[in-house]
Design a protein around this nucleic acid. Structure first.
Lengths: 158, 158
DNA sequence: GTGCCTGCAAAACGTTTGCACTGGC
DNA sequence: GCCAGTGCAAACGTTTTGCAGGCAC
């Protein structure tokens, strides 16, 4: 399983900090590692409760905070609504940014070395030491554009 | 006055939509156009109340929403805390993004054509129609880096 | 006079925490 | 047994809205 590496990493962190392996943490980790990326606390809780109906919101909240601390997860805020969590760049060995569709809410990940390079140049110009960055484009995805053009699927003027 | 153009634009929008010119809208517009960029509702309210102490929070909130609708203002969320408002790219004829210092909270604006170009290329690659974007780098500004090295005189903001 | 606008207060919303009980070690 | 972890509910900070009265037109 590809999740083994993530579980190991979590276990190592728990051990290092003297924290406990609880059944809730295990269930939440399974649900998070196996679930869709950019999941909200609420959505994750629903997945978790299929395994153990007694888990509370606060536990999921605190556990994702823990995952964030140990570098497994990253918190994202796309426009309004609740925060969403994804596997961190560090845990996927793959940095990415986001395209967010304003019509369907879909999130596409992208990576572009040219942007990264340009970013470094800007930081250098301002003597700024970058710790993290956020690069999000909001607009309409290809699928929604096509749906908008098809006269049957949707009225032209909304 | 450089603000005349902004006031005109607001008036045109009010006229077009059949909305009313009220004293509150005038005072809030003055305070917003003349105040610092990246201002919060709370801070703007304080400025407004110097002119008219009876203005309420909700009015400032609703008025900034109006400014955002008519393209004069843009809402920004930098990390935690309340939303901040700035003059929109459209109203300044000058697109910019942000460097946010995690130590002093200072916000620096920057513009880089290389990033914009790279962005367009990505959008094209995904067939995505971009409506707006957000490009923020979080880190440590030059002043804070120097203050950290010589911890005698650190300029603390916020 | 009409109905948009305002100010207040309260609701809504998402996040965070205090507390008593539970359970891992 | 100790103390971190949990579940509940309530607190929190911010945003949004319902409503009665006020004011631009």
């Amino acid at each position: 399983m590809a999740h083994d590496r993530l579980h190991e990493r979590l276990n190592a962190y728990l051990a290092k900090k003297g924290l406990r392996h609880t059944s809730q943490r295990k269930v939440i980790a399974d649900a998070f590692f196996g679930g869709p990326n950019h999941i909200s606390i609420e959505e994750l809780l629903a997945r978790v409760r299929k395994e153990d109906a007694r888990v509370g919101y606060a536990t999921v909240y605190r556990t994702l905070k823990l995952f964030t601390e140990c570098g497994l997860a990253a918190e994202r805020n796309f426009g309004s609504g609740p925060s969403r969590y994804e596997l961190s760049d560090e845990s996927t060995d793959h940095h990415h940014d986001h395209l967010i569709c304003l019509e369907c809410g879909g999130i596409t990940e992208f990576h572009d070395p040219a942007v990264e390079k340009a970013q470094e140049a800007i930081a250098r110009r301002y003597g700024f030491r970058v710790r993290s960055h956020k690069h999000e484009m909001y607009g309409v995805c290809q699928a929604c554009q096509q749906a908008d053009e098809a006269p049957r699927a949707r009225p032209r003027r909304s």
